[in-house]
Amino acid sequence: MNRIIGIKLAMAIIALAVLLLPAAPAQAACSLSISQTTPLNWSTWQKPSGSVTADITTADALSGTGTHLYGTAAHGVFSITSNPQCSGTITITVADNGGATGVTLSNFHLVYNGSSVANGTSGLTLPGSSGKQLLVGATATYDNTVSTSTESPTLKITVLESGHSVSTSPSETASISFDVPLTLTKTSDIDFGTVSANNASTYRISTAGTTSVVSGTGQFFSGTPTASSITVAGSTTDTITIQATGYTANNGVTPSNATCSYNGAASQACSSAITGAAPGAGKTLLVGVDVATDGTQAINTSAAPTFTINVNYQ
């Protein structure tokens, strides 16, 4: 009987002791997070007829079998953090996560905490609560099923902590746009007609095809003066620049001071780049120029000096 009482008393003391002990704090779990600072963006590429690639490095260098049209590409920038309960190291793996018709992502280029690392590398330093930066480049493989607009492929970035096998795998959205290439179709060259032989003068033809003598005593004799006409076609959204370069003399005749009238706008000098509206299905570019004759042009001869009209997406 006393023994039973003794046991009950011991149990009561133990229970009391347990109740009186201060509660131990609950153990917090390791937590990882990834936030996107700059989305991965290939800018705008030409819609292809077959499957091609566009690659961007973490230094924003572009390459691939596709044709870059315009825009500023940027590698992805992400911040990875871990709370103090995490331990060990981390493994970073990036994979394609779908989301865009005709576009797949592969060949990820990673720079973690300032050092280039292979995709899937383990043993990386824990980012800690202050976080560490992850830079991401990649190859986008795309085909003719892409639309001439912006596609939003996604990538899954998986960070695995070794101490507690905790991981996070958010899906991050990238972007790559597609457009049609610029095409130039020359309808006519410039024609000054016939002017004075053996006479050093400078002649001008405007974008409207009107001729004049800029300097000298030369004269226009005959012919139907014609400005050059070029049809520019391409993007319906991206504006263009137009510039005349590469003036090349012929038979003592030197061209200079090209003028351009694009889409009905007023004529303006285009030896320096000028801007114009998105060409869409086709807009007309009229081109005039000055030519200086050095006076050595014999009777019944001709000359064909040239220059180049460059049209680029902005």
């Binding site: 095409t183 130039l184 060259d189 007609g193 070029i230 030519v291 000359a303 180049t308 460059n310």
Partner: peptide, 16 residues
């Protein structure tokens, strides 16, 4: 960039 260019010829004839 996607550069497109075309060569423009400025034809001119000479006579007395």
């Amino acid at each position: 960039t996607s550069a497109n260019m075309t060569l423009v010829q400025a034809n001119i004839a000479f006579d007395q």
